[in-house]
């Protein structure tokens, strides 16, 4: 097992190098001197800001030196300082906003699992039933749904017309004066819509995948064997088949991480949630380059770590993987 983990970690090295090269390439996207073009397009960038940008990326040095000094700073999480008036270190700004983003994403991942897996399994077990057909239609709609639009509609319905749920922020104005339990309920009320919506995007994919997986497993020889032994259909489906069909889901969940993290930009902007996605959006709008670069790198590394966790848990669950 340890051997497997070490091997996986080793394979991460070229990916990490690639990630840094692409991020570094994005900084140098503008032809000519990046500072000139960036500052020309950004009226807010003074001569001083230009100087800071030059110092941060060592833009007066040869390109390979620029890259290595950038990576060296990255390794100790020195992402430079934000261009915004507060002028704080980028790493601090990201770290204080990361927990809420991760919290929402973990909740929605949990929600996806709890909803999509039973739907997929049931649709497969009752293939061609009414339930299967209805969910197939819902899956098609789910794939085509612009989630930010769904967010608007739900805000209009639950926020504006019914007035049941708050539509922005994560806390009410009187948050500080509420007793702990009401404060917690207040937080939950603010998170219901964002979590539901960010889960929505993954529901269609996972339930479809689960259905296909289950259908394939049901056709395997060992299921026929289990039936031939005289086991009840219940045991065959929910014990023998389900366990095997669940295994690849771990990988799919790992693969869905970049989508969830990317989606946080949209939800956090719509619902005014002070997370990493909103920070990223504001940084893009104000051309706060150090913050943009920092979040891009961190987002990619989070994905890499998520995939590693998925691979390792797959190996824990399925010994066949470890041997390869």
């Amino acid at each position: 097992m340890l051997n497997y983990i070490l091997r996986r970690l080793f394979f991460m090295i070229p990916l990490l190098i690639g990630i840094t090269i692409i991020c570094f390439g994005v900084i140098h996207l503008a032809p000519g001197s990046p500072t000139d073009l960036q500052t020309q397009m950004n009226p807010r960038a003074s001569a001083e800001a230009k100087e800071r940008l030059r110092a941060l990326y060592d833009l007066d040095k040869p390109i390979y030196q620029q890259y290595f000094s950038w990576v060296r700073k990255l390794a100790v999480l020195d992402l430079g300082k934000s261009f915004s008036p507060d002028n704080r270190p980028v790493a601090d700004k990201i770290l204080e906003r990361l927990p809420i983003t991760l919290f929402i994403n973990v909740l929605s991942l949990g929600l996806i699992i709890v909803i999509a897996i039973p739907i997929g399994v049931l649709a497969a077990v009752r293939q061609n039933s009414l339930f299967d057909k209805v969910t197939a239609v819902l899956v098609f709609i789910g794939f085509a749904m612009p989630t930010f639009w769904l967010a608007l509609l739900l805000m209009i319905l639950f926020g504006v017309h019914l007035g049941w749920l708050p539509i922005s922020g994560i806390r009410s104005l009187n948050y500080e004066y509420l007793p702990p339990l009401s404060a917690f309920i207040d937080l939950l009320k603010h998170l219901i819509l964002p979590v539901l919506l960010s889960a929505f995007g993954g529901l269609a994919g996972l339930s479809r995948y689960m259905r296909a997986n289950m259908l394939e497993v049901i056709r395997q020889d060992y299921i026929t064997t289990a039936r031939a032994k005289g086991l009840s259909e219940r045991v065959v489906i929910y014990k023998h088949a389900l366990r095997n069909a669940l295994l690849p889901v771990i990988t799919i969940l790992g693969l869905s991480i970049p989508g969830l993290i990317g989606g946080s930009v949209i939800f956090e902007t719509i619902f005014a949630i002070p997370g990493m996605g909103q920070l990223f959006y504001m940084a893009v709008m104000s051309r706060d380059y150090p913050v943009v670069m920092g979040i891009l790198v961190i987002g990619a590394i989070l994905t890499l770590v998520g995939n590693l966790i998925a691979d390792v848990s797959y190996a824990v669950a399925d010994p066949r993987i470890r041997i390869q």
């Binding site: 970049p258 993290i261 990317g262 987002g299 990619a300 994905t303």
Partner: peptide, 8 residues
């Protein structure tokens, strides 16, 4: 594929 496409 490591990059959240929307971030990139």
């Amino acid at each position: 594929l490591c990059f959240p496409t929307f971030f990139l």
